[in-house]
Design a protein around this nucleic acid. Structure first.
Length: 584
RNA sequence: GCUCCCAUAGCUUAACGGAUAAAGCAACGGUCUUCUAAACCGUAGAGUGUUGGUUCGAUUCCAACUGGGAGCGCCA
């Protein structure tokens, strides 16, 4: 099933190949930025005009003559410097709406060649309470995993937990001194973080604390039974606490292979890198340096200085014999390649780590992993009210749990106001779906590359381009079906006459395009934008076109539009990790 | 010092090299005897940080600059 854009594109391509030689490169067709001009436009005559020095408008006219659009679109109009504008015919729209209505996938194709895609996201540190800084990775990663899965890829969602590393030396030291198994069990993050922060403060001024923490770490890494057992306790309770959060969020992982999973592989990785001459010893550490194959400007292992370039190595073993997170990351790439046969790995990690990933990917390629696409899907920093990055060390963090509680709380208050007749139980469910939906959507709806200032109001706004607005459109449709007293729609033909019906139909056919674009660019906000426009057009249709009272043929046709809209909204929101409700 | 990222209405953002730069919030004014007013309709509000360049055409590409942020050897 072609999307309208693909349909027009195929026909334009056909016409172009008849007319022009050599054939200018595709794609030719894009949506009109302004619907007044039409539904789709092609600028191929402009491109060809430049190539052949011919008048673009003449070329456009010639193209218009040879195009076979039989019933798909009206005869194209030549506009501006040489655009061809296409307007889909109501008959074509009606046919396409009917097809999508009968399609469980709503017109979204599955990919011809499925890949194994690992999505690496969320990745909290078990020594610290999950905070607002984990929101973007978790929500974005979950949505990307859902998108790729829906398109037919084999997705592996992997939570690369921060469960190893220097911090645990401090925690072990502190826990042995003042740890409380009861507290650990009850609230592992709060307890561990308190210990961690206290020891960290002490370590700043006290050399003996630093030393003690370091030796605890060495013991742990050497497999000391007591430290190992303690660490396992930390991990066990932390995982349980994380599960509670993920369950509330509706986020699922196929694997939780934390950094510690790769611990045993690290010596081998370094040995291999040394053996192949990729890494070498330097100042007691082992590091990967530039191999000189890239222009210095693009070489992630060089940084320029006043005069010339200075090495910017990637450390894979510290001079004290410990390993760096680059080593773990390399081991992880190898593991995912060998065990999962990953063809693509998405790292949903913040923008500040861009340098690290450039180095890591470059090192991985030199190590021989050329057939796996490694993508750093980075996102901007969450800022405090002072426009300074939200830092966890300073204390003033917004805990994830508080975030979820507040989301549900705020939603609950609004629901109590608007629907006082609902039972407590119904209200609680609604509060969860609406509150968490708003929270997730606020994050997903914007360009991930942009920093944003954290504010409750913004994250939990229920007006405008928000999840509740989309959920509300869905609810209104369900109300129509309830009121009409029917679940199955009678077989009917779709007839489109009202402008609101036509506009809604056009938008319904664009679902696949928006899903594909969101997945390709790793940008769920394209899908959000689409769903918002769809909901807006539905609300306009709802105002302009009565359904239940309409005469039978019109009523049935409109019911089909309603049903397809509802299913598209539900599916789209599902791809964002957001639920719908039957009433709100 | 160097590298990377960001800059669009009062605020938050959109715009897949194209037409008169598009929404939401906030402001103002309307619409519930009719499928849920968490809705809809209308008014006002920017010429895209600056300066150049490429192009028939630039918010989009390139260069320089300004402002903000991040990173630059043993944290992750």
């Amino acid at each position: 099933m072609n999307t309208p854009r693909q349909e027009i594109e195929a026909r334009v391509a056909q016409g172009v190949s008849k007319l022009f030689s050599p054939v200018p490169p595709a794609p030719y067709v894009r949506p009109c930025p302004d619907s007044r001009h039409g539904d789709f436009q092609t600028n191929v005559a402009l491109i060809q005009g430049k190539e052949s020095k011919a008048n673009p408008r003449d070329l456009a006219a010639q193209l218009a003559e040879v195009l076979e659009l039989d019933g798909v679109a009206e005869k194209p109009e030549i506009a501006g410097p040489g655009f061809l504008n296409f307007r889909l015919t109501p008959e074509y729209l009606a046919r396409q709406v009917t097809q999508r209505w009968g399609d469980a996938r709503l017109g979204v194709p599955t990919v011809a060649q499925p890949e194994t895609v690992v999505v690496d996201y969320s990745s909290p540190n078990i020594a610290k309470e999950m905070h607002v800084g984990h929101l973007r990775s978790t929500v974005l990663g979950d949505s990307l995993a859902r998108l790729y899965c829906f398109l037919g890829h084999h997705v592996i969602a992997d939570n690369h937990l921060g469960d190893w590393g220097t911090g645990f030396g401090m925690i072990l030291f502190g826990y042995k001194r003042e740890g409380d198994p009861e507290k650990l069990k009850r609230d592992p993050f709060a307890h561990l973080e308190a210990i961690y922060q206290k020891v960290q403060r002490e370590a700043k001024t006290d050399e003996t604390v630093r030393e003690a923490a370091r030796s605890e770490l060495v013991l742990l890494q050497q497999g000391d039974a007591k430290n190992r057992k303690l660490w396992e306790e930390f991990l066990k309770y932390s995982l349980a606490a994380l599960d509670v959060i993920y369950q509330r969020l509706g986020v699922q992982f196929d694997y939780t292979l934390g950094e510690s999973s790769y611990n045993d592989a690290l010596p081998g990785v370094v040995a291999d890198l040394l053996e192949r001459g990729i890494a070498r010893e330097s100042e007691g550490a082992i590091a990967i340096f530039s191999d000189g194959t890239l222009p210095p400007k693009d070489d992630p292992f060089l940084v320029s200085e006043k005069e010339g370039y200075r090495d910017n190595p990637l450390l894979v073993r510290k001079s004290d014999g410990g390993y760096n997170y680059a080593t773990t990351d390399l081991a992880t790439i190898r593991y995912r390649h060998e065990k999962f046969h990953a063809q693509r790995v998405l790292y949903v990690v913040g923008g500040p780590q861009q340098m690290h990933f450039r180095q890591l990917f470059s090192a991985a390629r030199r190590w021989g992993y050329n057939d796996v696409k490694l993508e750093h899907v980075w996102f901007g920093t969450i800022l405090g009210a002072d426009k300074k990055p939200f830092r966890s060390r300073e204390g003033e963090t917004v805990k994830f749990r508080a975030l979820l509680d507040e989301a549900e709380d705020r939603a609950g208050k609004i629901i109590s106001e608007k629907r006082p007749e609902l039972s407590d139980n119904e209200r609680a469910t609604l509060a969860r779906v609406v509150g968490l939906g708003a929270l997730k959507y606020a994050d997903l709806a914007q360009n991930r590359n942009i920093d944003y200032v954290f504010s409750w109001e913004k994250l939990l706004a229920f007006d405008g381009n928000t999840a509740p607005y989309l959920q509300n459109a869905y609810v209104r449709i369900r109300a129509i079906f309830r009121k009409a007293g029917l679940e199955k729609i009678p077989e009917a033909s779709v007839q489109l006459t009202e402008p609101a019906e036509l506009a809604l139909s056009r938008k319904l056919l664009d679902f696949a395009d928006s899903v594909l674009m969101a997945a390709e660019e790793y940008r769920p906000h394209y899908l959000c934008l689409y769903l918002f426009e769809l909901a807006t057009l539905f609300h306009k249709f709802y105002e302009a076109c009565p359904v239940i009272q309409a005469e039978e043929a019109t009523r049935n046709s409109r019911l089909i539009l309603c049903d397809l809209t509802a299913r598209t909204l539900r599916q789209g929101l599902n791809l964002l990790g957001i639920d719908v409700v039957e009433q709100m």
